[in-house]
Design a binder for these strands. Structure first.
Length: 578
RNA sequence: UGGGCGAUCGUCUAAUGGUAGGACAAUGCCCUUUGGAGGCAUUUGUCUAGGUUCGAAUCCUAGUCGCCCAGCCA
């Protein structure tokens, strides 16, 4: 292991969950350990790569691949390249290149080299010439439709193209002219000459190059022929001397082709190993479909806090540490399952519980008037910034005779097992005083608009000298000192555990949760929150974890709820109702 | 119906021929100046049928079920 890279060191120094996950085995680690033991790659160090196509934003599924690619290389003292698989100019954009780099860094990883498949276009072209010369590739004049027809089916072999046996000279001439731009899009392709009867469709003379008169985000109009994924990927790995090329399971059928190119070219033998994709309940992890949500404006953008993108999760308040811990804890195998979203939420709460500063915020304010509190008096009570972490210190929070409490914390007629405030009952205002409710004031329609109570001046700080106990502690905000903010509460984007579980003829959009966001405009917050910064993480006590949204301005604060706190009263209530 | 891959608590994942364990979830109790956190306890599992073996989640055979593949996408 090397200490040269502080960021990847930080990954290693994660606390127990990751350590635990690392102690137990996984098949990828076993393969690499065995290859190291047998010196399969001689003296070469372990080299991996994370190879996204810049055609969208990274999501938490990519986080798994990133943790595997970077994490495993690092464990074995190796390096990882970030390589953009930019072989299709029609779908790729610089915006995505930029966001991907930002997201990988945010997750906590640092690449060895920044690479682009497009950097290898000249080499790939030379190798294509080489394959033509040894009779392993040919130019095909068939249309896309005809090629499909010749491919055969899952159960029937394909048929050779009539152009399959052109001479080397003719192939060389035609391929050079394809590159020169003599031919229109779709008129010809270069194909590998393998086996049209192979049971593996990928081996039925796969297309190596297609003609695309499109402007590439990096190479501009320099090229009008572009290599296919299969022709570019293995060779790019080989050029970078990647020892272990980890990818997801759907590429398993491509592995024979990956090897075929490398063997016929006689180049560095990178090896492909497949693992299962990350699936999470109630979460859509398909780049193609996420792009649809963005383009059809079903969400407010790639970084909408409801999105499973890394930028969405970041804006929502999720932390790289929790995402990494979750990925490590959910493991890697070759089965296709779906991890409960509760596990992600657990690791995020666990992280935030230890680190987030506490604050008091009342989301649905109800005025509480303390009748025996001296008029015009105000004072400050001392409050711990984080009870989990004494080193976080304390702060002074203003208190006065009128405070806001949450509407949920008062019931005129308390249901069974309801411990919070109700007429005649004594509870604690957190870090302040014991209070006892006496009466309510209602408006014309019967809604409670004010609760009147008395306080016990001897209970300052939250304890009564006579040892009296209360069953409930409630958060509050002094009415005279409270600040306002907009609060955005998020729920699952989809209503079904598998968003792809749809009725005939419907698509995933039919499973969108119409109530995935709720905006609260009347919330009252303790004044210290006026100084919140974008990167701060808060626990609004008894409510949930929150962070400032970039939409915030000096005049108007906006907070996003990352996750609610676990709520056992809600569970009791739900059970009683059911 | 061709090929590839897979199958362990509700979920995810360990056990590499030798005690089926962990995490999440759930349930109960304890504790608590957050009905948060924490602590303790509990429940549930090797797809099926054969076989090899002193011994099988693991090896063999047959079956069942699931996922992937017929882009000039990646």
């Amino acid at each position: 292991m090397t200490d040269a890279n502080p960021e990847s060191r930080e990954v290693k120094s994660q606390d127990t969950p990751v350590q635990d996950a690392r102690q137990s085995s996984n098949f990828l680690r076993d393969i690499i350990a065995e290859d190291v033991r047998t010196q399969k790659f001689g003296d070469a160090q372990i080299q991996t790569r994370f190879p996204p196509e810049p055609n969208g934003y990274l999501h938490i599924g990519h986080a798994k691949a990133i943790c595997i690619d970077f994490g495993l290389a690092d464990e074995f003292g190796g390096k990882t390249n970030l390589r953009f698989d930019d072989t299709n100019p029609e779908k790729e954009e610089q915006e995505y290149v930029d966001s991907i780099q930002a997201d990988v860094r945010w997750l906590g990883f640092q690449w060895e080299r920044l690479c682009y498949a497009s950097d290898y276009f000249p080499q790939l072209y030379d190798w294509a010439l080489q394959l033509i010369k040894i009779g392993n590739a040919y130019v095909d004049d068939l249309t896309a439709d005809q090629i499909r027809q010749h491919r055969g089916t899952l159960t029937e072999p394909g048929a050779d193209s009539p152009w399959r046996n052109r001479t080397v000279e003719e192939n060389l001439d035609l391929f050079a002219r394809m590159k020169q731009g003599e031919f229109p899009d779709g008129s010809r392709v270069l194909r590998a000459k393998i086996d049209m009867a192979s049971p593996n469709l990928n081996m039925r003379d796969p297309v190596m190059y297609r003609i695309l008169h499109a402007t590439h985000h990096r190479t501009g109009d320099q090229w009008c022929i572009y290599p296919m994924y299969d022709y570019a990927h293995g060779q790019s790995d080989s050029i970078e001397r990647v020892t272990h090329s980890m990818c997801t399971l759907e590429f398993a059928d491509h592995q024979p082709l990956y090897r075929w190119y490398i063997e016929h070219l006689g180049i560095f033998p990178s090896q492909q190993i497949e693992f299962d994709r990350l699936n999470i309940t109630y979460t859509l992890l398909s780049k193609r479909k996420l792009i649809q949500l963005v383009q059809e404006k079903r969400v407010h953008g790639w970084d909408d806090p409801r999105m499973p993108t890394l930028s969405g999760l970041r804006r929502r308040g999720f932390t790289p540490e929790a995402i990494r811990t979750f990925v490590a804890a959910s493991g890697v195998s070759r089965t296709n399952g779906s991890t409960d979203i509760e596990m992600l939420e657990h690791f995020q709460r666990d992280d935030l519980n230890r680190r987030a500063s506490r604050a008091m915020a009342v989301l649905h304010p109800l005025k509480l008037v303390i009748d025996n509190y001296p008029e015009a008096k105000q004072e400050f009570v001392e409050v711990a910034n984080n009870p989990e972490d004494p080193s976080a210190g304390t702060r002074q929070v203003p208190f006065s005779g009128e405070v806001f409490i949450d509407q949920d914390d008062f019931r005129e007629v308390p249901p069974p097992k309801y411990y919070r405030l109700s007429p005649g009952r004594e509870v604690r205002l957190r870090n302040a005083y014991f209070i006892t409710a006496h009466s309510v004031v209602k408006d014309a329609t019967g809604n409670i608009v004010e609760v009147h109570c008395t306080y016990d001046p001897l209970s300052r700080g939250g304890n009564s000298p006579d040892g009296r106990k209360v069953k409930s502690t409630m958060h509050w905000v002094s009415a005279a000192h409270a600040i306002s903010a907009e609060i955005r509460l998020y729920d699952k984007l989809f209503t079904k555990p598998d968003p792809g579980d749809v009725e005939e003829g419907q698509d995933v959009l039919s499973n969108l949760n119409p109530n995935s966001v709720e905006i609260l405009t009347r919330a009252r917050l303790e004044p210290s929150l006026a100084n919140a910064k974008l990167e701060d993480r808060f626990q609004f006590e008894r409510v949930g974890y929150f962070c400032l949204d970039p939409d915030s301005t000096a005049e108007k604060l906006v907070f996003n709820r990352t996750l609610p706190l676990k709520d056992s009263w809600a569970k009791i209530e739900k059970k009683a109702g059911a």
